[in-house]
Design a binder for these strands. Sequence first.
RNA 1: GGGCGAUUGGCUCAGUCGGUUAGAGCGCGCGGUUCACAUCCGCGAGGUCACUGGUUCGAAUCCAGUAUCGCCCACCA
Length: 855
Amino acid sequence: PPPNVTGALHLGHAARSATEDLMIRRARMQQRPTLWLPGVDHASIAAQWVLRRVLADEGTTPEELGRERYLERMWRFMDETRPVIMGQQRRLGISADWGRERFTMDARSARAVRVAFKRLYEDGLAYRGQKLVNWCPGCGTSVSDLEVIGTPEQGRLWSVRYHLLPEGAAPGASPSHDETITVATTRPETILGDTAVAVHPEDPRYAALVGRTVRIPFVDRDVPIIADAFVERDFGTGAVKVTPAHDHTDFATGERHGLPRVDVMTDAATMSEEAGPFAGLTREACRERILADLAAVGDLAAEVDHELAIGRCQRSDDIVEPRLKTQWFIDVKPMADRAMKAVRERRTRFVPERFEKVFFDWLENIYDWNISRQLWWGHRIPAWYCPDGHVTVSDDGSGPQRCVECRSVELTQDEDTFDTWFSSGLWPFSTLGWPDESQDLRTYYPTTVMETAHDILFFWVARMMMLGEWLTNEEPFSVVYLSGLIRDPYGKKMSKTKGNVIDPLQIMDDIGADALRFALINGAAPGADQRLGPSRLDGARNFANKLWNAARFVLGARPEELPTDAVLALPDRAQLGPAEHWILSRCQVAVREAETAYAAFQFAEASRVLHMAIWSEYCDWYLEMAKVRLAASADPAARVATWQVLAWVLDRYLRMLHPVMPHITEEIWGRLPHRPDDGDLLITAAWPAQDQPGPAADEGQAAAVADLLELVTQMRNARADAGIEPSTWLQADLRFDDEREAVVFEALADTVARLARVRPVLLPAGSSPSESAALVVVSRGAEARLSVRVEDRERDRARLQKELDETERLLASTRAKLANEAFVSRAPSHVVEGVRTTEAELQALAERIREHIGE
RNA sequence: GGGCGAUUGGCUCAGUCGGUUAGAGCGCGCGGUUCACAUCCGCGAGGUCACUGGUUCGAAUCCAGUAUCGCCCACCA
């Protein structure tokens, strides 16, 4: 989504950009045709606020400048601010098609807006009419329903007595003193605009009063008591004042009953001439005066605290006033139906899926879209009026010559501009050349993925889908990926006033763009808000550092025997040792799992898989194992083969990680040998998950190595528990149940020595245990005895006992399962078999441990 | 008022198809000047998976209800 032109890069942008860049880079490596079109949005209301502050600093105001000079100043401001936000985006390293940068206020967008509007007008969807709009006095413009935020606030509910006219009395007669109807209101100032009182048609309390006339105080207007089912009998007094010009419900009621609309306010939210004695007062002052006056004459019947939802402007936080205006609206229902159809037909799907429901709920209950804004900055509505009031809509850039109805040449253009989201809603196709049948449009439209935060699902995504379906007859994108918002470590929204904002530019200075990207990707579940704080950022920085250092080691360990122009390749299979089979096997698993996650939009999972594989498998184990085989004393062929595996595996990790951390992976990759079919840059290199898998690892050897590593861990554990100095070399007698494991061990004896700091000796399978004092380590297929001093061994008793307890606990639960007749007969056989195997292993293990404890 | 989501070690979160010994990072404890990395290495402690009931041979996972928190929508004035 295009960021606002006047904005500074914040973490939300960074997160969106990182996610989008991830997708585009992966697609590019998969050799798919990719286009990521960057740009900025003109954000009319936001820009107007920003420029007003700038002008204030310059000692002037928009009003002083006038429309024309104001717009000139705005364009100059755009020229200053636009490169700033674009430059900040580039620092993230996002691989957009920068040469195609677009702006929602550029000439091509302007044309698309005109054409779209004319089409909607001709289709009967765009119309001009007098309706209630949401008027924001602070912004001086109407805003759409979405921009009005219902804010729960403590208010009051006043009950006011209206006096009835005597039955059958002529209009203007004196109202009755005693006969009254009491209405409840939270907004006494709108009394002045009342044109009816409504009660429920089945409310016995008021049945007799329906049809009578009441006198509205202060303005002395006589209005009817009407019956309408919208009235809630249980609320307030059960009688409602009806103010069609100042309340959305009342407007609808007024339409049903043909009530007049009396507008008692001005654009500045002060009382108008229609307010009679209160004209000129602010709405707040008017309320006070009315309440005082009502109380004075005894017509204020009750006053209670009442919590209500106040509509406030998203931008200015002012209380939004429903006001009667003649403006442009779009009947969105037909478009909404088309958009919903695209989703039902699965031409567009949401990730995560649950947003479909939110999407449907909104579109099913949608109201007409008010698109007129009383702002200067924006696309001016291409509608012209002649002196007779005829409307001419034109998509011609220079406007119409004559009125379409009376041929008058005296035409005046509508003063208003479009809601910014109208032009944003055209983005997927206006940027590709629409309305022209351009080559780009044919190639890239409909697009593949729309990625954005869920807070603009209605504002933007739904509008793009409606406008796209209606204007191009195609869904604008097939996947909507909705991400969450970034919050501070305590779950609070980041805001400047709270002072909890993390500045992505500062973070990039501190830890680099890649670390920031990794932190953002790694912490983000689709659709879920994420908390971001120092600890996650530190972790990401550490990972970048780890990868860099591992690469430094690999590059530095390159054997001299390998020709400088050697291509990236695996050695002959015969040259692979067990450790090489193990890491090749692990690498294949990681590539497969990461790809599955990427394909399912589970980007955090993909990053976790790669983080684990690189850190916990490649660095923690394989690099350490490789060091032995790389040592100068080793056979040169083995040394070369080992390095080839190191490089080959690293290459795969780098490719898979590139979408997340483009800079560091590119930098490292550039220093590794490449395959003959590779270009110079990783950004366009082939995606491992779909290229040739390479020779399959020997899974038997890989599994044996895994067991051996488990044994190493246990030996370390035993040493630590017994408090053996880490630097001490111990003698270790090893015995394996399985002959193949023994063979693998023999090949890796030096490696085991290094990893566990022991001098390992292989005992024959049936040999008797050593008599010397020893730490005993027992694993499923092997055991080790570490020779130590007697007192060291004494400290070790507890460890074996603990292991036995744990083993017996597991054994008990396994046996309980097998003892369950229902389990054995109903569970799938492979599950039962698995449990049987586990039971046998655990039993053997327990026996062996017991044996050693008995010694 | 309606809807959605969350609830898993001290903290932040994974756990996708019901069967794994429930994982990770941070934090915590113990140890470490091993020639890639102290932004590091090794070892460890720490979880009745919010609660109640149900389905199932088997539930963190599916269903119903409850509680708490968060978000979205809404014309009880």
